[in-house]
Design a protein around this nucleic acid. Structure first.
Lengths: 256, 256
DNA sequence: GCGACTTTGTGCCTGCGTTCACAAGCGGCT
DNA sequence: AGCCGCTTGTGAACGCAGGCACAAAGTCGC
């Protein structure tokens, strides 16, 4: 591979693949759990099992952020935590605003400290006048018309859209105008944003439909009893007792 | 590539890539919206713009489910809807159970009819005795110990885990024992399941951390004013009025 | 102090997913 | 009836991500 001219300029950190970033977040959580248990050192094998990935992949992911392992020993849990937090930008806290205080908005507002802290929800918005002032999860609800001033005052960097679909694009536009460049969208809508803005979406219906697809597949390939709730012999037929775990496309783990 | 021996047997439908399945769900939603607007025919270009993807990718995705387009014309909206629903297994309704009736559980229980229907939440579970019997979103809450019998009676095919992290694995095991083979996990935990079970996870913290990562990146590459809330000239400087839209890794769309 | 063992970091290969580009096919216009 | 233009469907190229396997490097025991 030639010296990696990643377009970005020259001194850009390293260009970490998106997929690796997502996994780093998972590693971070697992590591936090280990730290609480008093574990100070971990090998790539152990960590990979706990995170449900291949150990080679894990090592490659970690190599993107630097060289912090000790050969023959493993990684120091705290060092890894610090470094991943650094790369993910968790050193400076990001303030989160939630727009749309329905059921989901409530849930998000009460989420409070996330595991491993770092994302305080500090502003809530809605259009319903009845909600104004009433604090939800300790945070007062503001009217969406005040979004610009409130976001500026509270230095909001992440906006969460939890509105009905019809309102999502308008809300998104307002967030962008207020200077928010990171948006997490729960509304089942394809948002249009300027290219400076980063959007991630969480789409419940899509997730369920994907599950439905696999369910249908299963039903097709084994057309016998359908929902017949067999007592589940469940096998646990342990053929090869080597690695008790195997990777899954989605990061879940197969228990054998 | 040899004639594609996909292990699955022989008569398996086609082997649709996972990524394509996720997009099909999005197309379905967009198409439903179009149908409501009275649109009967759509070209791959139009649909791809609405769905925020490349038109070639859209056509390839659709080609996985069959050949339903008319060259020189486009696709018939209704036909496409029917076919995508068929492939995603939405013809037979899937009953959903939600476990963990906290804030998120409430939100999910009230989600009710999803856009394009198909996923009725018909059972709720929790450990808290105070919740028993009290209906949430019209559905009574059952104790988690009754999970097997209730799931069997209501023919639950999809289980949603909305519990605290510590309880997630136990709940998952119980769902699996009850015969549920599709699980949507909101708890920040890597679940272990038998290989017959399909798990998808929605991880709020990970999503936020990915956004944080990009935010950090941005701040690094442009180290001037930081959160300085510039009034945002925001341009909307529409230089080239050709395609007003461009693809984004995440399915969001860039407005120019 | 040295050797053997353990574990990291990574080069290379393989496979999947995305994109391009074009031939095939269909409708409408003349 | 024949031609023209539009749109689909897909073969082929490309690039990225995943996984294997091994050399490098460090520790522990003797």
């Amino acid at each position: 591979m030639p010296p990696l001219t990643n377009g970005q300029g020259a001194l850009s950190p390293r260009a970490i693949p998106e997929a690796a970033v997502a996994r780093l977040a998972v590693y971070l959580r697992v590591l936090s759990g280990m730290k609480e248990q008093g574990i100070t050192t971990v090998s790539s094998e152990e960590l990979s099992v706990a995170a449900g990935v291949n150990s080679a992949k894990l090592r490659k992911d970690l190599s993107y952020i630097g060289t912090y392992g000790t050969r023959g020993v493993g990684y120091e849990v705290e060092v890894l935590i610090d470094q991943i937090e650094r790369v993910l930008g968790l050193t400076r806290e990001q303030s989160v605003a939630v727009v749309g205080i329905g059921n989901l908005g409530h849930a998000l507002a009460n989420y409070g400290g996330f595991p491993g802290r770092g994302f305080p929800v500090t502003a809530l918005f809605d259009v319903d006048p009845d909600l104004m002032g009433v604090p939800v999860g300790g945070i007062p609800v503001n009217h969406i018309d005040d979004i610009a001033s409130v976001c500026a005052a509270k230095e909001i960097t992440i906006g969460v859209i939890a509105t009905p679909p019809a309102a999502a694009q308008v809300v998104c536009d307002r967030l962008v105008q207020a200077g928010v460049e990171c948006i997490l969208n729960f509304a089942p809508v394809v948002l249009q944003v300027p290219e400076t803005v980063e959007v991630r979406k969480v789409d419940l219906a899509v997730e369920l439909q994907i599950l439905s697809f696999h369910q249908a597949r299963r039903a097709d390939s084994a057309p016998s009893g359908e929902t017949a709730p067999q007592p589940r012999s469940n096998g646990r037929v342990n053929g090869s007792p080597r690695h008790s775990v195997e990777n899954r496309p989605n990061g879940a783990v197969v228990r054998r």
